[in-house]
């Protein structure tokens, strides 16, 4: 299925790129993000707790970035799995200057499998769009200073501000807002968080709906 959307962020493309690649921001802004783990060059593993309604669950995902054209565009390859199913998505993200702001457009081509795939496209996209909107609203609040960022600290000893230089053999783990300690995310992680998070979130939401029938 295809999932397209856009958000207006009140900062320049360069600032948006920085925010979206700041692990601390991402950890705070990805809805339900528990942790981000750097597992290689532009590759991350993350856990997201999700659930609309009473039931929440944890879903594990991996994200890889490619085709980075800072500050204009990149492509994110995300996959995630939880008990109710799997998601695999390729997401193209573009940042376009628009007066004092930046228009971010995303275009996801997602394959949803497993039982969750049966809940209907409108439901999946509805949840994903809602989650994406929550994420971008949170990011925009960070960019415009309407929220005071909580100081994020790396939960792993060897945190690096430049994830590209971190050796793949020494993974870094950042903890999201939903986790116990806040994490220090890497900038690419963010990007993945934006969409990967929402895709994983939607998975979880769908799961939640399904599990909701068995209190």
């Amino acid at each position: 299925m295809n999932l397209d959307g856009s958000a207006v962020l009140h900062a320049s493309p360069e600032e948006v790129w920085s925010a979206l690649t700041d692990p601390a921001v991402l950890a705070r802004t990805i809805p339900g993000c528990l942790s981000l783990e750097r597992v290689g060059e532009d590759e991350y593993r993350m856990n997201v707790a999700v659930g609309v309604g009473a039931v929440k669950g944890t879903y594990a995902g991996e994200v890889r970035l490619s085709d980075q054209q800072r500050p204009e565009s990149y492509v994110m390859h995300a996959s995630g799995a939880g008990a109710p199913g799997q998601v695999r998505a390729t997401v193209t993200i573009e940042l376009t200057p628009d007066a004092d702001a930046t228009t971010l457009t995303y275009s996801a081509d997602a394959v949803v499998g497993g039982p969750v795939a049966g809940v209907g496209q409108r439901m999946i996209t509805g949840v994903a769009k809602r989650t994406a909107a929550q994420f971008f609203t949170a990011v925009d609040a960070e960019l415009t200073g309407t929220v005071v960022p909580i100081a994020a600290a790396p939960s792993a000893a060897a945190a690096s501000e430049t994830g590209a230089e971190a050796p793949a053999a020494q993974p870094e783990v950042f903890t999201g807002k939903a986790g116990v300690p806040a994490g220090t995310p890497d900038l690419r992680t963010l990007a993945l968080g934006a969409l990967g998070g929402s895709l994983l979130t939607l998975l979880g939401v769908a799961v939640g709906y399904r599990l909701g029938r068995r209190p």
């Binding site: 309604g53 049966g118 809940v119 209907g120 496209q121 409108r122 439901m123 709906y209 909701g212």
Partner: peptide, 8 residues
């Protein structure tokens, strides 16, 4: 709460 699926 309790919604499972929506089809169009």
């Amino acid at each position: 709460e309790g919604l499972v699926a929506i089809y169009t």
